[in-house]
């Protein structure tokens, strides 16, 4: 991602993959966050940890405009404040109970999460539409090698290496338990028909295999 001095936007998911009234886990540099869309359609992001007993909030549920923990049903608003503790129905939760939140933007069918305070807007993806998100078990360099192209400062990379014309939107690569991992959003030219999209999805899988094979070879002594 383009990293100015104050922060940057990380593309975490396709808008279409975050249904109203659901929560999903998403990956940013700080680790996993809980990304959720309220019933009215508002997207929000918070730390993936309920401060009560440490349970992952991305395992929780969304009712109305609040995100609830699956463990004890503690609920949080979009501003991160605890709004409800079911064990104590008469209690207004003290203001000190809250989860860390992240600024979220939705544009061109992608959900972006702010890390720090980005000075500019997320990059424009005009001419492209999101197809699917793939997790690649390889770093950005291996993906660039497989695609035969370099990513821009915004993480955008255009390729025809696997036949179909694709645009890959790469999140920053991360070290996970199994090695390096890169969440990759696959975009296709706006207006292309389902058969082309299916072919593009298969091309993206092929690129992933190529990148992972390259990364695997790189790991051998």
């Amino acid at each position: 991602m383009r990293s100015d001095t104050t922060g940057f936007w990380t593309p975490v998911a396709l808008s279409a993959d975050v249904l109203a009234g659901t929560v999903i886990p998403a990956r940013v540099s700080a680790g996993i966050i809980a990304l959720w869309r309220s019933q009215s359609g508002h997207v929000a992001a918070s730390a993936d940890r309920c401060p009560h007993r440490g349970m992952s909030l991305s395992h929780g549920f969304v009712r109305g405009e609040a995100l609830s923990c699956i463990y004890h049903g503690w609920s949080y608003g979009q501003d991160g404040r605890c709004v409800r503790i079911p064990a104590h129905p008469g209690l207004t939760p003290p203001e000190t109970i809250r989860v860390t939140t992240y600024a979220v933007r939705e544009s061109d069918g992608i959900v972006w999460v702010a890390e720090g305070t980005p000075a500019s807007d997320p990059p424009s993806l005009a001419g492209w539409i999101p197809l699917r998100t793939l997790t690649v078990e390889a770093d950005r360099e291996a993906i660039e090698t497989a695609a035969g192209a370099s990513a821009s400062a915004d993480g955008l990379l255009e390729t025809t290496r696997a036949d179909e014309r694709l645009c890959l939107l790469l999140s920053p690569s991360q070290q996970v338990r199994t090695g390096m991992q890169t969440v990759t959003h696959v975009l296709v030219a706006d207006g292309c028909l389902p058969p082309v999209r299916i072919a593009a999805s298969r091309s993206a899988e092929r690129l992933r295999r190529m990148a992972e094979t390259a990364a695997e070879k790189g790991r051998l002594p």
Binding site: R53, S56, A87
Partner: peptide, 16 residues
């Protein structure tokens, strides 16, 4: 649950 270990530091989790 995070952390996996049980936190005994009272600041880590919020009981009622």
């Amino acid at each position: 649950q995070v952390p996996r270990l049980l936190p005994l530091d009272p600041g880590m989790e919020i009981p009622t």
